[in-house]
Every structure is written in structure tokens, then in C-alpha cells.
């Protein structure tokens, strides 16, 4: 095994170049996450409509988005949206990435919200009705305060998962760290060092956050003494 191809000079040259993209990668992660958090509510709301046709359609759409590759969805928004008749618009690649990844992960987030709401004990609903709470008060004072905290660690996990999916946006020329690394690679014909830097950066950022989430999960489980079981919510 010889490491003659590895050059520390190239490494040091590539490092500041790749780091230029770090802001975009982190910014994109936060934007996608917020988009998914908000859009997740829409799915949860639509799923709660008591009409079996609407329910079936919503479930089908969610399943479709969830089981097709986010990469193809990104391409669809980036390349196909501008040429669509009537609603065709050309969006900035960053916005495309936020919408594409945001919508993809909102289907998972919506499922998390649903599991949180369903984990609230049936007696709580009945008690709220018995105490003559209005619908608004029932949700804001009884259900949501109990439904939300157990979902926090799962939402945190999805934050990390999304962070790891964000480099997909490099394929539609969003200048994150992976895009920067590939640009450096094609300019200097040296891919090894920049790609390795990207890998190290991801490890450095995601591993500590994963530990943090684990700690948070323990704390919340201890406090609320509950754990919400979800199915179908892995990415």
C-alpha cells in the first residue's frame, strides 16, 4: 500500500476552497428543515380530514413522494418546472433544493407529528371534551403540549438525516461543500483530497450532533416518561 497519490499540498490548497461552501451547506440544511417542519403540518392536517377519498389521495401522494428518489424530485423541480405550461417558473437552484428536499422530508415529518398526536392518551381527549373545552383550547392546551415534546428527538434525528441529504443539491449546482470539492477536482484534476475533506467535515458536524440528540432524547424520555413508536419514518 503506498500513499504517493496523497498530497498534503493539495489538501491545504483544497481546504479553504471547500470551506467556502460550508455556509451554503449549513444554510440549506436549516432552510430545508424549517420548510419540512412547516409543510409537515399540512400533511398532518390533510390526513386528519374525515373523508375517506381525500384521505386515500393524501396517503397515496405521501407514499409516492416518500418512495421515489429525492434526486429525481430535485431534477424534476430544477429542469421540469420551468417548462411546465401555465405554472412554469424558473427558480434559483437554492430555492429548488429547499423545495425539493423540504417536500420530500415533510412527508416523514408529517408522519412524526401524526404519531405524536396519536400517542396522546384517549382519556385526555375525553377529559377535554368533558370539561367543555373549545376545539382551539383542546388542541393548544391539552393535546399539543403533550404531543410535541416526545417528537423532539425524532425531529432532531431528521435534522441530521437532512444534513446528510443536502449534498444532493450539488447536482443542481448549489455551491455546498460537495459542489466546491468537485469544482476544485475538475480544475486541478485532484479529487481525492477535496472529497476526503468533505467526508471529514460531514463526520465532524454530524457525529457530535448525533450524540447531542441522543442526550436530548434521554432527557426528554426521562421527563415525560414516554417514547413514541413510529413506523415508516426512516430515511
Amino acid at each position: 500500500m503506498d500513499f504517493t497519490y496523497w498530497s498534503w499540498d493539495t489538501f491545504l490548497e483544497a481546504l479553504p476552497f471547500v470551506l467556502q461552501g460550508l455556509g451554503i451547506t449549513i444554510g440549506l440544511t436549516f432552510s430545508c428543515f424549517v420548510f419540512a417542519l412547516v409543510f409537515g403540518f399540512v400533511w398532518t392536517f390533510l390526513q386528519r380530514i374525515q373523508n375517506k377519498y381525500i384521505k386515500a389521495v393524501v396517503t397515496f401522494i405521501m407514499e409516492f413522494i416518500r418512495s421515489t428518489p429525492p434526486l429525481v424530485q430535485l431534477f424534476f423541480i430544477y429542469y421540469a418546472l420551468p417548462v411546465l405550461p401555465v405554472i412554469g417558473v424558473t427558480l434559483h437552484p437554492f430555492v429548488c433544493a429547499v423545495i425539493g428536499l423540504g417536500v420530500h422530508f415533510s412527508t416523514y415529518i408529517g408522519e412524526i407529528y401524526r404519531s405524536g398526536i396519536e400517542s396522546v392518551d384517549k382519556g385526555q381527549w375525553e377529559a377535554a371534551t368533558a370539561l367543555n373545552y373549545s376545539t382551539k383550547d383542546k388542541w393548544l392546551r391539552i393535546i399539543l403540549p403533550q404531543a410535541f415534546p416526545p417528537t423532539i428527538p425524532m425531529l432532531g434525528n431528521y435534522f441530521i438525516i437532512m444534513f446528510k441529504e443536502v449534498p444532493l443539491a450539488s447536482t443542481i449546482s448549489v455551491g455546498g461543500i460537495l459542489f466546491m470539492a468537485r469544482t476544485f477536482g475538475s480544475e486541478h484534476w485532484a479529487y481525492l483530497e477535496p472529497i476526503t475533506i468533505v467526508g471529514i467535515l460531514f463526520l465532524l458536524l454530524s457525529y457530535p450532533s448525533a450524540l447531542l440528540i441522543k442526550k436530548l432524547e434521554k432527557k426528554i424520555n426521562h421527563r415525560f416518561n414516554t417514547s413514541v413508536m413510529t413506523k415508516n419514518t426512516n430515511a
Binding site: 449534498p167 477536482g185 448525533a210
Partner: peptide, 18 residues
């Protein structure tokens, strides 16, 4: 800890060189 796309490119570019 790292993403699939990064691993894919790493294996694609780095393994033959390294």
C-alpha cells in the same frame, strides 16, 4: 456519519488513486 453521495464519490475517485 457521512452521506451516501459523498461515500459514492469517495469510492469512485479515491479508491483507485489511494
Amino acid at each position: 456519519g457521512t452521506s451516501l453521495i459523498v461515500q459514492l464519490f469517495w469510492l469512485y475517485y479515491a479508491i483507485p488513486m489511494l
